[in-house]
Each structure stands twice: as C-alpha cells, then as structure tokens.
C-alpha cells in the first residue's frame, strides 16, 4: 500500500466511509462545491461609495505612496518626479507594456527587461487592484516577470482606474473570466515589505522593496 492509499483509507475509515478512495458521489459533491464558489461575509468598507477613495486610504495605511495622472502619456513624467523627490536615480527596468512611452523626454533611463540583482527601481502594471486592502494583483506571464516587483528596492506600479475592484473575491472572478485559471504566480502586493521579527518592532524593508509607489492612470 502506498502512503497515498494509507492516508486516504485512514481518513475514510475514521469518518465511517466505505472503501479506500473517495467514491464518484463524493467527488461529484465536492466538484459541485468548487464549481459554485460562495463569498463569505465581507466588511462594509469593501463596498464603498468610491472605490478609489477606499483604495488610496488603504494604500496610506500599508505605506504605499500614490499619485494620479491624467493620461498614460503622463506616466514617465510622474515616474521622474517620484524618483527625484525620493532622491533616487532616474533609471528603471520595466515590463514591456511601458516601452512605447516617451521616457527620454522625461529624463528617465528605461530598460524593458526583467529586474536583476542590482536594479534599483522596477516598474510594473497590475491585472487589477483591490480597494478593500490597498492591494495590487500581479499575474506572471512572459511579459510580466514577478522579479521586477520583488528584487529592486523601489517598486512603481501602474493601476488602471477601470481595473479597480472592491474585494479579493472580485479579483479571483476577474481572473477566471479573463484567463480561465491562475497562472504560475498570482502575487498580491500591499505596500513595501516589512518585518517585526526583532522585538515585535515594525521595520519597513525586509527582503522585498523598501518603497512602493502606485500611479493611478486612466
């Protein structure tokens, strides 16, 4: 008997079910549950009158800074402004989705490639954002490397206003609707990395970025 068979048989035996494997009826029952996902209780602030107001409030809480731009073409200028204000070098690596923008006139050195160990600032988009918790969702794909949001000390993330949702459940429903299923990595980011492992004292900047800046674009 394999470990798998033994474990399943032990569970079934302990629960008074016949046989060593789940029956067709058992599997049918759980598949029906999985095919019809149900939402649990959600807090009132997950359904605010204005999603953007709630999203930005939660960004403030988790330590994500933010700015809004009137059009996509304004993103390079906002990136340049943010980096200068933070005293950071005007050099970024980014997802290819931003390669068509005019970085040169904003004075930003732009490279479209996944981040490597010494890169200081990474620019990414996101599939959607969640207002309840001030969270962005980054899905992996050939054009959306996760390392760009993870290795650099500064992560700048563009959020499309139309992709702002209320809850995590809405984000999962959107992924199912648009992509069928989750890619290898679904990465929910809420602010700069942190730790309180020494004397329960919160320190910003553990192994991930020290700074997260969100740019709200139309």
């Amino acid at each position: 008997m394999s470990a798998r068979e033994n474990i399943l048989a032990r569970i079934r035996g302990a629960q008074g079910k016949p046989g060593g494997e789940p029956t067709a009826a058992d599997l049918g029952r759980v598949r029906a549950v999985m095919a019809n996902p149900v939402n649990g209780p959600q807090p009132a602030f997950a359904h605010p009158p204005d999603l953007l107001v709630q999203f930005l409030k939660e960004c403030d809480r988790v330590g994500t800074t933010h700015a809004q731009v009137a059009s996509e073409a304004d993103i390079p200028r906002e990136v340049a402004r943010y980096l200068a204000a933070a005293g950071l070098e005007a050099r970024i690596v980014a997802w290819p989705a931003f390669a068509h923008l005019d970085w040169a006139s904003a004075g930003v050195t732009f490279e479209s490639r996944p981040a490597r160990r010494d890169d200081r600032t990474g620019l990414t988009g996101c599939t959607c954002a969640v207002a309840e918790t001030g969270t962005t969702l980054l899905l992996s794909s050939p054009d959306q490397p996760k390392v760009t949001a993870l290795l650099p000390e500064t992560h700048v993330c563009v959020v499309r206003k139309s992709r702002l949702l209320g809850t995590l459940e809405e984000a999962f429903a959107l992924v199912r609707r648009e992509q069928g299923e989750l890619p290898r990595s679904a990465f929910f980011v809420s602010g700069p990395s942190r730790t309180a492992d020494i004397e329960q004292t919160m320190v910003i900047g553990a192994h991930g970025p020290y700074r997260v800046h969100v740019i709200i674009a139309p």
């Binding site: 939660e58 809480r61 988790v62 996944p114 918790t133 001030g134 969270t135 992996s140 794909s141 050939p142 490397p145 996760k146 390392v147 299923e181 989750l182 890619p183 290898r184 990595s185 679904a186 990465f187 929910f188 980011v189 809420s190 602010g191 700069p192 990395s193 942190r194 309180a196 991930g208």
Partner: peptide, 24 residues
C-alpha cells in the same frame, strides 16, 4: 495574528513556470 488587515504579500503558486516566462 498581528492585527494587520492584510499581509504585504499573498503569494499564490500554481504549477511550474509557463512557456516563455522569465521567472518561476
């Protein structure tokens, strides 16, 4: 656990890296 409404990262991993993926 610690009074946070959410942790900084929720990391969902499903299978191996996809064709052409830069990481994973």
């Amino acid at each position: 656990a610690i009074g946070q409404s959410i942790t900084n990262y929720l990391t969902l991993t499903t299978g191996v890296k996809g064709p052409g993926d830069a990481d994973g």
